[in-house]
Simulated scan of single mutants.
Amino acid sequence: MQFDWQFFWKSLFAPSDAFLKGLGLTIGISLVAMILAIVLGLVVALMRRSQYAVVRGCASVYIWVIRGTPLLVQLVIIYTGFAAVGIYQFNDASLLGLSVKAAVQAAIIGLMVNESAYIAEIIRAGLDSVPKGQFEAAASLGMTPGRLMRWIIVPQSLRVMVPPLGNSFNGMMKTTSVLSVIGVSEMFLVTQSISSATFHTFEIFIVAAIYYLALTTIWTFIQAWIENRLARQLGIEQRVPITSRLLGARRAAASATLQEEGAR
């Protein structure tokens, strides 16, 4: 069995319409699910900080259950389990002139629920990173909780939250390959279909891997731009270049800096 270079290059630079639709669906599901997950994660994080024990307990149980069960199991429960027991059945719907299939709706909900549990902890840690003295100072000045969060807490905590939130989105784009189990025609399922039809398994899956790598790389640049912009707004110098981030040299650079400071 020989590697079909002609098929490989054609699939890489002139992919089929089905592959491009799968790629677009992967990006679309990732974006919508991430936005919804941030909103839900913020709600859960605020519940974790509530003064009422019952509210804090509900948020803690939610995070414990979602983080403790596999996404694959959650997707099957949401899409087929709920319909089987009569709780809810997803049906094809039309939104803003676009036809959204039932499996896609379930996929977005599943990713949103799964990711929100992790994002809630990221947001909670970011909010906790702000010194409590600033809360007390704002309260003494008569600032409302809304203005406190908008002008003091959020700008400072964003710099702490953006890197892990960006990593979560990066992981979500790759995790969309799991959605094939409920029949979502994202990039991985389309790749499987092309492989079955052409018997060029090795070639087409390498093409898919390259496209996944391209998506995560593009997002790495976008994330770096966001972090650099936040750093400039806070007057902090960004010391690690984007090439170091891509090549995984960020930790090494940080270690070198610590060693240099220790030598002094």
Rank of each mutant, 00 (worst) to 15 (best):
I29P: 08
Q238N: 11
V104M: 10
I78A: 00
L141K: 10
T198L: 07
A102C: 04
A139P: 05
G22K: 13
V190C: 07
S193E: 12
A117P: 03
Q6G: 07
A263K: 15
A231T: 04
V100L: 12
G146C: 00
A33G: 05
M47H: 07
E260A: 15
L96D: 09
R56N: 15
F221G: 05
M149D: 05
M47C: 07
D4V: 01
I63N: 07
F7A: 04
Y118C: 01
V43W: 04
Q6F: 03
A214Q: 10
L40Y: 02
R251T: 11
D17R: 12
D92V: 04
T216V: 10
R245L: 11
Y212K: 02
M47V: 01
T80R: 15
R239D: 09
G97R: 02
I38V: 12
K10Y: 06
Y211P: 09
Y211D: 10
R239N: 12
L95I: 15
L246I: 14
W151E: 09
G262S: 14
Q6W: 04
S94V: 15
R67K: 11
I77G: 06
S116C: 03
Y88T: 02
R147D: 09
S116R: 00
G133S: 08
G81K: 08
T144R: 05
I206Y: 00
A263W: 13
R48E: 11
A254P: 03
F169M: 10
A102F: 05
T26H: 13
D4N: 03
G126E: 08
F8A: 01
V104P: 07
L215M: 14
V32T: 09
